[in-house]
Nucleic acid binder design. Structure first.
Lengths: 262, 262
DNA sequence: CGTTCTATTGACTCGATTCAAACTAAGTGG
DNA sequence: CCACTTAGTTTGAATCGAGTCAATAGAACG
């Protein structure tokens, strides 16, 4: 990794990401621009952190992809796209439970934990936004459990590609249904919990069905509708703006003692 | 469901749960005792909430088990034990993405969202504690992804039972390695993403190996060590007290530009 | 320009599913 | 209290999706 010290530009994709979850005020944006960052460049398969590390800085991903990978079994549990802070949870639970690995070349802004603590105390709204980042991750993890548990491998792979595409769009990186895919078929396999050989066969099947092309480290979605259908992907599940709408309590029949009627 | 209105007793297992994540002060306990609750009783397979519901109250589980279940595929993504608040995330992201279902008979305390907002503003420490609940869930979800993705079905089932046991111990419900199991083998299968038939064969295998008995809606762990071995379970992973220890930054070789040396 | 990843293909194997049927336990109501 | 119903468990046999192994082809990189 090579490092340079910079200040106040790395926040833009993060702002896109946060704004997709809930409004950001001008004051919040102001706070974000003050973000101090050390830029780091990583090569494919570089480990940014290892299991049991206790870093004092968060990684804000600027370019490329990172993943959390269980050290012993090699299972990928989540993939970070630019604008993500994959180790945000380390602010409160400092001991890492897995390794953070670069999928392809990656550029990262290291930001001191103290910065996030500061902006969280300065802005209730940002605090909520950061909490929503964690909840969105939670929703993605649940979705991934459903994917691994209940769907066949073709569906799994298609679903992963759909999810990646949807997230990349949010930060402006999937224009024209085209985005960089510097990761390998084996990486896809590790995420989908299938063998690399089988991953290859599935990608061929997706190509055969003309829903995507994947060459020269670039994926092009040729038929988004079809890919969503194959992947059982509902574009909204990441829950953009699924927040803070005070409503009337919904009284279940059950609560009225009518359980037997259902 | 039948309901009764009560106040100030439902918090004890919740306190055990929170205290397992980080210290609770006397002031925090005081705040918790003021918890207003409507008690609800549910029968097996009752739905407490459905996908897309927007409840104004959280469920604090008092007795039994609840699970989040994807409506279409039936996959269980997590199981709640007494002391858990499975829908805590609905405080910030009110639209539910799955159904909350009772596994066996269950007793729940419904607590208004406003109560949690109040104690969170009253105590920084409790706020952090509630955030840790979410992070612990996050860690469990990741662990479950590894389980579903990378381990065979015997290991998966053993792992689930280990995890349940560990969590029940925290709230005092697995004394003598014995705990209630009102859920069915099909429920276990839905959590482990295997067929009910296969779940049955696996339970028989665990019985044959004398690591547990499961009869009369009760599981007894006869050989905890062996069960952990079969389930690849590391008892500490839930991260009790994995918090807030300010440390020196760990400088990776990568950051010093020594990536090539590794 | 060779070395090293990565992608591709075929053959064989195996864990897990599915289907079907029988059996057991647990209610429920007459 | 027993007959009846329903839910859950157990068993066997056939089938299939996906893994593994092994070998080759192609791309990328120093």
């Amino acid at each position: 990794m090579t490092s340079t010290m910079q200040k106040g530009f790395a926040f833009t994709r993060l702002a896109d990401h946060l704004a997709s979850l809930a409004e950001l005020t001008d004051g919040d944006l102001e706070l974000l621009t003050a973000m101090p960052a050390v830029i780091g460049h990583f090569a494919p398969h570089d480990q940014l952190f290892r299991k049991m590390d206790q870093p004092s800085r968060c990684c804000l991903l600027l370019q490329g992809y990172l993943c959390w990978k269980s050290h012993d079994l090699g299972q990928i549990t989540s993939i970070a796209v630019p604008g993500d802070i994959p180790d945000l949870h380390a602010l409160l639970a400092p001991r890492l439970e897995a390794s953070l690995v670069a999928l392809g070349p990656a550029v990262v802004a290291f930001v001191p934990h103290s910065f996030f603590h500061e902006i969280a105390s300065a802005s209730l709204n940002l605090r909520r936004n950061l909490a929503l980042v964690s909840l969105a991750e939670n929703a993605r993890l649940r979705d991934w459990i459903i994917n691994l548990g209940s769907r066949d491998s073709l569906t799994r792979a298609a679903h992963l590609i759909c999810e990646l595409t949807a997230r990349l769009r949010i930060v402006g990186l999937a224009k024209d249904n085209r985005f960089a895919s510097p990761f390998t078929q084996s990486d896809l396999a590790s995420a989908c919990a299938i063998s690399a050989v089988h991953a290859n066969r599935i990608i061929q099947e997706l190509r055969r069905r003309q829903v995507l092309t994947w060459q020269a480290r670039t994926i092009v979605i040729n038929d988004w509708q079809a890919l969503c259908r194959i992947g059982c992907f509902e574009p909204d599940y990441l829950g953009p703006r699924n927040v803070a709408a005070p409503r009337q309590p919904v009284m279940r029949a059950a609560e009225l003692g009518l359980s037997a009627l259902r």
